[in-house]
Computed example of a mutant assay.
Amino acid sequence: MTILLTGGTGKTATPLAKLLPKGQHSRTIGHPEGVRFDWLDASTYRIPFDADDNIDRVYLVAPAIIDVFPPMKAFIDFAIQKGVKRFVLMSATMLKEGGPMMGKVHEYLHSCEVDYCALRPSWFFDNLLLHYSDTIRKHDEIVNAAGSGLIGWISTDDIADVAFKAFTDKVIEHTNPVMVGPELLSYAQIAQIMSDVFGRKITHRTISADEYKKIVVRRGFPEEWAALVSATDLSIAEGAEEKVFKQADFMGERRLRDFIESYRDAEEWKSV
Score class of each variant (00 low, 15 high):
residue 258 D to I: 08
residue 11 K to T: 15
residue 260 I to W: 04
residue 97 E to M: 12
residue 203 T to W: 00
residue 12 T to E: 10
residue 155 S to H: 03
residue 145 A to T: 05
residue 80 I to M: 10
residue 139 H to C: 14
residue 118 A to G: 07
residue 76 I to D: 01
residue 244 V to S: 12
residue 270 K to N: 11
residue 79 A to T: 04
residue 269 W to F: 07
residue 226 A to N: 00
residue 164 F to D: 06
residue 212 Y to E: 06
residue 24 Q to D: 11
residue 1 M to S: 13
residue 19 L to Y: 02
residue 172 I to N: 01
residue 66 I to E: 14
residue 163 A to W: 02
residue 150 L to V: 10
residue 114 V to K: 01
residue 183 E to Y: 08
residue 85 K to M: 06
residue 23 G to H: 02
residue 66 I to C: 11
residue 155 S to I: 06
residue 201 K to W: 06
residue 6 T to G: 03
residue 249 D to L: 03
residue 210 D to M: 09
residue 135 T to P: 09
residue 113 E to G: 08
residue 29 I to Y: 11
residue 207 I to M: 01
residue 206 T to L: 07
residue 167 F to R: 05
residue 29 I to F: 12
residue 53 D to R: 04
residue 84 V to Y: 01
residue 48 P to N: 01
residue 60 L to H: 00
residue 233 D to V: 06
residue 76 I to P: 00
residue 241 E to Q: 13
residue 51 A to G: 03
residue 16 L to G: 02
residue 79 A to E: 01
residue 213 K to E: 12
residue 37 F to D: 00
residue 232 T to Y: 08
residue 160 A to S: 07
residue 256 L to G: 06
residue 130 L to P: 01
residue 12 T to V: 15
residue 270 K to E: 08
residue 213 K to H: 10
residue 127 N to H: 12
residue 23 G to T: 00
residue 160 A to L: 04
residue 251 M to Q: 13
residue 49 F to W: 01
residue 237 A to T: 04
residue 231 A to P: 09
residue 80 I to Y: 02
residue 257 R to I: 13
residue 96 K to P: 04
residue 44 T to E: 04
residue 115 D to T: 08
residue 82 K to G: 00
residue 257 R to C: 03
residue 97 E to G: 05
residue 234 L to H: 07
residue 86 R to E: 06
residue 162 V to D: 04
residue 111 S to M: 06
residue 253 E to D: 09
residue 106 H to F: 14
residue 263 Y to W: 13
residue 72 M to K: 04
residue 239 G to Q: 05
residue 10 G to Y: 02
residue 269 W to C: 07
residue 270 K to D: 09
residue 118 A to H: 04
residue 146 A to Q: 11
residue 204 H to C: 07
residue 205 R to V: 13
residue 234 L to M: 15
residue 87 F to Y: 00
residue 136 I to H: 05
residue 206 T to G: 06
residue 82 K to Q: 11
residue 227 A to R: 09
residue 23 G to Q: 03
residue 170 K to N: 12
residue 140 D to S: 15
residue 131 H to L: 15
residue 12 T to S: 11
residue 144 N to S: 14
residue 181 G to T: 03
residue 179 M to V: 06
residue 149 G to S: 03
residue 141 E to C: 13
residue 42 A to Y: 08
residue 54 N to S: 14
residue 141 E to D: 10
residue 126 D to Y: 11
residue 117 C to Q: 12
residue 216 V to C: 08
residue 177 P to R: 02
residue 188 A to G: 09
residue 34 G to S: 02
residue 61 V to A: 07
residue 104 K to G: 10
residue 39 W to T: 03
residue 54 N to T: 15
residue 225 W to N: 07
residue 201 K to S: 14
residue 26 S to M: 14
residue 22 K to T: 13
residue 271 S to P: 10
residue 103 G to I: 03
residue 14 T to M: 10
residue 26 S to E: 13
residue 111 S to T: 04
residue 154 I to T: 01
residue 246 K to H: 15
residue 13 A to K: 03
residue 181 G to F: 00
residue 243 K to N: 10
residue 129 L to A: 07
residue 145 A to I: 06
residue 134 D to R: 09
residue 131 H to R: 11
residue 16 L to A: 05
residue 120 R to S: 09
residue 5 L to I: 02
residue 168 T to H: 09
residue 266 A to D: 14
residue 122 S to L: 03
residue 125 F to C: 02
residue 62 A to G: 02
residue 86 R to C: 06
residue 244 V to R: 08
residue 105 V to L: 04
residue 207 I to W: 01
residue 231 A to M: 14
residue 63 P to G: 02
residue 11 K to I: 15
residue 211 E to R: 09
residue 159 I to G: 04
residue 125 F to A: 05
residue 262 S to K: 09
residue 268 E to A: 12
